[in-house]
């Protein structure tokens, strides 16, 4: 129960923000908080609270797995890499061959968010493949 208390602020915020399928449980010294956020900003808000409790995420006692609800209306995403191009690959994995690239800040078409880590995308040039979702920000 001590871990639930330590991260109570995250759970409370999750309940208030309308996280669906929220599950909080402890097993072998690790607290698992799972759920689906209605938007990316809600996920960021929970991570901000996590960062206040454990600034460098070194506790090793929490898995905060908040997914952002796949939105069927999202058809465009902006490439938000630090500076480099984003690789577009034949399949979902860095072991897959690169079939195209998208430049930073380029807006590309999202075909499917079926895989939360790897979105199926298409560039303006018609190159289609999988891009790493961390570097994509959904456009309204």
């Amino acid at each position: 129960m001590a871990l639930q208390d330590k991260y109570q602020a995250i759970t409370n915020a999750a309940l208030q923000a309308g996280i669906t399928d929220l599950q909080v449980r402890e097993q072998s010294g690790v607290l698992y908080i799972d759920g689906t956020a209605p938007s990316g900003s809600v996920k960021d808000q929970l991570w901000d609270i996590y960062g206040q409790i454990d600034p460098n995420f070194t506790g090793g006692d929490l898995i905060l797995d908040v997914k952002v609800a796949a939105n069927a209306n999202v058809t465009r995403a902006r490439v938000t890499t630090d500076s480099s191009n984003l690789n577009i690959r034949k399949g979902p994995g860095t072991d897959q061959p690169i079939v195209g690239k998208a430049a930073k800040d380029e807006v590309i078409t999202v075909v499917s968010q079926g895989n939360p880590q790897w979105w199926l995308v298409r560039t303006a040039d018609g190159e289609e493949g999988y891009a790493y979702a961390t570097y994509l920000t959904a456009e309204a």
Binding site: F57, I63, D65, K67, Q117, T134
Partner: peptide, 23 residues
Amino acid sequence: SLPKLMMTLNGLNARKIDNKLTI
């Protein structure tokens, strides 16, 4: 970069993440 990496790793269904990274 740390929060971005941690967010991604937390979504992979690991049992635990032992972060010994130096900032």
